[in-house]
Design a protein around this nucleic acid. Sequence first.
DNA 1: GGGCCCGCAGGG
DNA 2: CCCTGCGGGCCC
Length: 300
Amino acid sequence: MSYAEEREQNIARNRALLDGLGINPLRPKCEPKENLRKKVAAKKRKSPLPESDELEEPLKKAPRIADDNNEPGGARRSSRLAGKTVDYKQEQDRGVPEPITFKRSQKLKVGQVKSKRTYDPHMYGHIPDVEVGTWWATREDCSNASVHGPWVSGIAPGPDGAYSIALSGGYDDDVDEGYAFTFTGSGGRDLRGTKTAPKNLRTAPQSSHQSFEDRNNAALQRSVDTQKPVRVIRGFKGKARSKYAPSEGYRYDGLYFVKKAWIEKGLNKGGFLVCKFAFMRMPGQEDIPVNDGGDDESDE
DNA sequence: GGGCCCGCAGGG
DNA sequence: CCCTGCGGGCCC
């Protein structure tokens, strides 16, 4: 079977799986009327660059979190996001936001402030003061905003499930429908090379099976049971196949639940097994910006 | 564009 | 100290 055929097959399987998760009330809202109107308008005026009003939303800059030098007693701030439209269920323990305490000795460059973070990323749910749709240029910035801690890793594991994940389009057969998507786990890559040809890489092609023994994959599997919300950021590298990926940088798209975890034959040379997960967006959140960008070539 | 290197977060 | 990880920057 050719790569293209296998890819189609995997995509069809993943898409069917997403659809089989049940009717999602968000689905009609993911293509809101405003976007449809914009789409029509954009086609009419045939301008490759949309008007500024369309650009404002997704490119909202991350609020630079001022490091309020953690006062011991007074640093507690209200954990309520009062006035938000998000409808939180009782069971969603978002954790009490505590000012982060730094256990690690950090190398300080000249003039660098010690604390880059106001909140500890090791908590479930929203990070206070970070709105859905917030955008960062790099993973480092996103990490400093406490939304997704790791600079490279796509999964931030925790005891009751993953805290957050990064969608960067690294797998050709992942399906992104905005309100729901499939996600491939970690592991099974050869990052070090051989003794004779050491590599010391951070990412690499699939070269062995993934499994739920992997710490990251195990965390996402736990998310299925605990139904803790997972923060999701979408990266620009996914824009080739997902219209929900930002054109640049990384965007916080809010909270999702992991509804299913399974193992399937991945789309890779060698047919190695990969861990896959089906995500569904928590209701009541701001719509995901849809990227209609001009250079869309590969629509199946 | 690809290849290579390497900092950092996070955990054992 | 070790290891991993859907980064990013540099060089070519």
